[in-house]
C-alpha cells in the first residue's frame, strides 16, 4: 500500500520534471500544456506516484515521457480505454489522459464518446493543433474548411468536428477549452478539471509551428475570449454551453463551457469498488461463494 514519502506542501515543479527533455519542435504549443499540467499538480499538491498519465500516439502523446508520474504510452487512439481500465483497477489514482486531435477525434473518436457517457473520472486533455504533425502534415478532424495540407493540396472540403459540441452531446460532465499561450488560465482549468468528479474534457489549442500556418498563436490571440470574463455566463446551463460551442471566427470562447456535478461517476456506481481499489482487494474467491457457484451447476 502506498505511503506518503513527500511531506505536504513540499511537492514542487522539480518532482514532475521528466527524465528527458521534450523533443517537440521549438515553439510548439505542447510545451505550454506540459508546464500547465505540472503547475496544476503542484498547486493541488498531488504526489507524482499517485498520478497516472496515459497517452495515445502522436507528437502530443509523447507527453507521459516528459513528466514524472506513472506514465503510459499506448496505441494510436486507445488512450481512453486504457485509462478507463487503469481507473477501474485503481480508482485512488489521479488519471490524466493526453493526446492530440487525430488521436482523440479521428482514430479514437468512438472511445471518446463512450468514455464521456460512462462519466469515468478521468481528465482528458487534447492538444488540438488541427493538423497531423508526427506524420508530417496531413488534414485532421479539426482542420478548418479550405485548409491546405499534404493530403488536401487543393483545400480541405470536409467540415471539422466541433469537439466542445460533441462532448456536450455525448454527456461529458465537464467541458472546457484552453489555449497553450494562456498559461494561468489553462492551469486553472486543468486544476478545476482534475478536481471535477467524473469525466472532464479539455480541448486545448496547442498550435503546430511546423505544419499549421493557418491557426497560429498569432491567429488565436486576438480571437480567444475567456468565458470567465463574462459574469453573466452560467456554466451549469447546457443550452448556453451548446450555443457558445458554435462560435468560431472573430470570437472563439475559451474557458469552462459546462459542468454538472449531479451525475455519479462510474466508480461510484460499481458496488464492487466499495471496499476500495480493486488492486488492493483479495484475489481469492471465499469458499462459501465458490461453493455457491458450483452448487448452481449441480
Amino acid at each position: 500500500m502506498a505511503t506518503e514519502i513527500i511531506p505536504p506542501n513540499q511537492i514542487t515543479m522539480a518532482n514532475f520534471k521528466g527524465r528527458v527533455e521534450p523533443d517537440w519542435c521549438p515553439g510548439c504549443g505542447d510545451y505550454g500544456v506540459l508546464a500547465a499540467v505540472q503547475k496544476a499538480l503542484v498547486e493541488l499538491q498531488i504526489p507524482q506516484h499517485e498520478v497516472a498519465t496515459i497517452s495515445g500516439i502522436g507528437c502530443s502523446s509523447n507527453f507521459p515521457g516528459f513528466i514524472e508520474t506513472y506514465g503510459m504510452h499506448t496505441l494510436h487512439g486507445r488512450s481512453l480505454p486504457v485509462a478507463t481500465g487503469v481507473k477501474m483497477a485503481n480508482h485512488a489514482l489521479t488519471v490524466l489522459v493526453t493526446g492530440g486531435d487525430g488521436d482523440g477525434f479521428g482514430i479514437g473518436c468512438g472511445h471518446f464518446v463512450h468514455a464521456m457517457r460512462r462519466n469515468v473520472d478521468l481528465t482528458y486533455m487534447v492538444m488540438d493543433n488541427q493538423i497531423y504533425g508526427l506524420t508530417t502534415g496531413q488534414t485532421s478532424p479539426t482542420s478548418r474548411l479550405a485548409m491546405k495540407t499534404k493530403t488536401t493540396p487543393f483545400g480541405n472540403v470536409e467540415r471539422p468536428v466541433n469537439p466542445i459540441a460533441l462532448a456536450l452531446a455525448a454527456g461529458a460532465t465537464y467541458v472546457a477549452r484552453g489555449f497553450s499561450a494562456e498559461q494561468k488560465h489553462l492551469t486553472e482549468l486543468i486544476k478545476n478539471a482534475i478536481q471535477h468528479k467524473g469525466f472532464s474534457f479539455l480541448d486545448i489549442f496547442s498550435p503546430c509551428v511546423t505544419y499549421n500556418h493557418d491557426n497560429t498563436v498569432q491567429w488565436f490571440k486576438p480571437r480567444v475570449k475567456k468565458l470567465e470574463d463574462n459574469p453573466a455566463y452560467d456554466s451549469t446551463n447546457f443550452e448556453a454551453a451548446m450555443e457558445k460551442s458554435q462560435l468560431w471566427g472573430d470570437e472563439i470562447p475559451i474557458g469552462k463551457f459546462y459542468e454538472r456535478t449531479d451525475v455519479p461517476t462510474l466508480t461510484e456506481l460499481e458496488p464492487v469498488l466499495n471496499p476500495g481499489p480493486l488492486v488492493h482487494q483479495n484475489n481469492r474467491i471465499p469458499a462459501p461463494v465458490a461453493k455457491s457457484f458450483i452448487d448452481e451447476l449441480m
Binding site: 497516472a52 496515459i54 503510459m72 499506448t74 496505441l75 486507445r78 480505454p81 486504457v82 485509462a83 478507463t84 481500465g85 487503469v86 481507473k87 477501474m88 483497477a89 485503481n90 489514482l93 468512438g110 472511445h111 464518446v113 463512450h114 460499481e270 464492487v272 469498488l273 471496499p275 480493486l278 488492486v279 482487494q281 483479495n282 484475489n283 474467491i285 461463494v289 457457484f293
Partner: peptide
C-alpha cells in the same frame, strides 16, 4: 466474485481496457 465487469464499445476498446487494468495491477 468481486470482479469488475464491463461491456465495452468494441473489441479494440476491450483489449486496451483490459491492458489498462492489468497495468494497474489486477
Amino acid at each position: 466474485a468481486d470482479i469488475m465487469v464491463r461491456q465495452v464499445e468494441d473489441e479494440i476498446g476491450v483489449i486496451n481496457m483490459a491492458i489498462g487494468a492489468a497495468h494497474a495491477g489486477v
